[in-house]
Design a protein around this nucleic acid. Structure first.
Length: 475
RNA sequence: GGCCCCAUGGUCAAGUGGUUAAGACGGCGCCCUCUCACGGCGCAAUCAGCGGUUCGAAUCCGCUUGGGGUCACCA
């Protein structure tokens, strides 16, 4: 049987990484077996409807590379793929359950339910007040036009169990199950009910979802294979200064896919990292492209325990993806920052080499290249460096000697480096004694991407000499 | 609180009765080196506890403890 999975987000305008990971695993589960990946929009909560939020979902899926085979925007034979457009389907199923005595109309008001909640001990559900209303009472209420919901009539005894590919057999006593609402007062189905109907009518074979949904639906159809995922946790600090670990949410910082993108993380790195949160390959590989994930993915590799989201490791994954880029790809991402820093296109190749191993995010380029535009009366102590045997005195001498050399040397990286080494040899000092002060004088900062030759290439001969002469004058 | 689930270093984790208990991130140190990175090498750090079962338990069972989730006309 061909595998069909579905990602069913609700359009809230925000894609949490937890949801994205669910989508990823749905996608991988299907694609690993050449199955079909369906996108379905769950917009049954009209109170939380957000304009344009559906577009955010499309954009995110596209950026992340998770292309669906069926969905609202591209159609498919199981449409429509938006729940609000399937509205007429749900009620008949609920009515059928009512007829069969498996569900009932509940006329309880919100007020009554709230009062119930307040007075009952915590953790007590609906009191099943309307579960056994007489036919007369029901008819009377209907005639009076009272609003109602349809609730599922859960069995009061026995237990329900089902098999989960990650957690194994899950069993819970029926008496603990609430008579949950299937159809709301407004006629819309609840998430759980619509899900079961949709998954069934769309032929979904495998349902992947977070383990917070572990309890639930027992409808009577052959149920799909469940794959419940351990939650993604976040680390935070509470009012008393204690470290707290809880379900990852907005208070843990950037947890939305777009937030992370804006912070400089690459889509493929985010995908790579979250794939590893709760799943491990058979070997020790850590860096994957999406096609490589499809190849390597195996449900058996999903773990049961919650995983803490670690921004440090995400950064490392991001860096690895950057290092693996071709110079062309690198330039595409780096270009805006180059323009901002004011670098010449002739330096692009050099910069790719210099920057690739030095940045974890492209946003860091600005800081790395800030010395190109900014130069001032830096602290002269920068010339002192014990390990390089550089002092204020030696620096002055070295700069004096280097200036004429730099004025006439062929202006390329190797020639400059060679010339500086020759100078050091001539003066019988370590390379670093001349190279350190030249680099400091040209850059005006202690830390630069690359050595003195690279710094000067980026600045150009004219600017380099101008700076070095100026620094020399200050010594 | 009821119910459900989970438990290997600070974090992600491999491990499915016999291993010196992998690997990665992070930390620390050394090497390389004109700075910072990259790279290389190395160090510290884990089977929550207690009972069983077994010739032998991180691996199986029970209890305890800890953590998390869930108890909506939200998804």
């Amino acid at each position: 049987m061909k595998i069909r999975t579905r990602f069913a987000p609700s359009p809230t305008g925000f894609m949490h990484v937890g949801n994205l990971r669910t989508a990823l695993y749905e996608y991988l589960t299907a694609k690993h077996e050449n199955g079909t990946f369906v996108l379905r929009i769950e917009d049954t909560d009209r109170e939380r409807y957000v304009e344009g939020a559906t577009q955010v979902i499309y954009d995110t899926m596209k950026l992340a590379g998770l292309e669906h085979d069926e969905g609202p925007d591209i159609g498919g034979e199981f449409g429509p793929y938006v729940q609000s457009e399937r509205l007429s389907m749900y009620k008949p199923y609920a009515e059928k359950l009512v007829e069969e005595g498996k569900a009932y109309r509940c006329f309880c008001t919100k007020e009554r339910l709230e009062a119930l909640k307040e007075n009952a001990p915590e953790g007590t559900g609906y009191d099943r007040h309307c579960r056994d209303l007489s036919a007369e009472e029901i008819q009377k209420n209907l005639d009076a036009g009272m609003p109602y919901v349809i609730r599922q009539k859960m069995p009061l005894t026995g237990s329900t169990s089902y098999h989960d590919l990650v957690y194994g057999d899950i069993t819970f006593p029926n008496e603990d199950l609430d008579d949950q609402v299937l159809i709301k007062t407004d006629g819309f189905p609840t998430y759980n009910f619509a899900n079961v109907i949709d998954d069934h009518t769309m032929g979904i074979t495998h349902v992947v979802r977070g383990s917070e949904y572990l309890l639930y639906d027992a409808f009577g159809w052959e149920i799909p294979t469940y794959i419940h995922l351990p939650l993604i946790m976040g680390k935070s600090v509470d009012e008393e200064g204690n470290e707290v670990i809880s379900k990852l949410s907005k208070r843990h910082g950037s947890t939305g896919f777009m937030d992370l993108i804006n912070e400089g993380y690459l889509p493929e790195a985010i995908i790579n990292y979250i794939a590893l949160l709760g799943w491990a390959p058979k070997d020790t590989r850590e860096i994957f492209s999406l096609p490589e994930l499809i190849e390597a993915f195996d449900i058996n590799g999903i773990s049961k325990s919650p995983a803490v989201f670690d921004y440090d490791k995400l950064s490392w994954v991001n860096q690895e993806h950057i290092k693996a880029m071709s110079d062309e790809e690198f330039l595409e991402h780096a270009k805006p920052y180059y323009d901002e820093a004011g670098v010449d296109p002739s330096c692009y190749a050099l910069l790719a080499e210099l920057l690739k191993p030095r940045i974890a995010k492209f946003t860091e380029i600005t800081e790395k290249l800030s010395f190109i535009k900014q130069y001032g009366d830096f602290e002269l102590e920068l010339f002192e460096h014990k390990k390089s045997k550089s002092t204020l005195e030696s620096s002055k001498q070295m700069l004096e000697q280097a200036i004429p050399v730099l004025a006439q040397v062929q202006w390329d990286r190797d020639s400059i480096t060679e010339a500086m080494k020759e100078l050091a040899e001539k003066l019988e000092v370590k390379n670093s004694v001349v190279m350190w002060p030249v680099r400091i004088a040209a850059a005006g900062v202690a830390v630069t991407p690359g050595g003195c030759a690279e710094v000067m290439i980026l600045l150009g001969r004219e600017e380099s000499l101008r700076r070095i002469n100026y620094a020399y004058s200050r010594l």
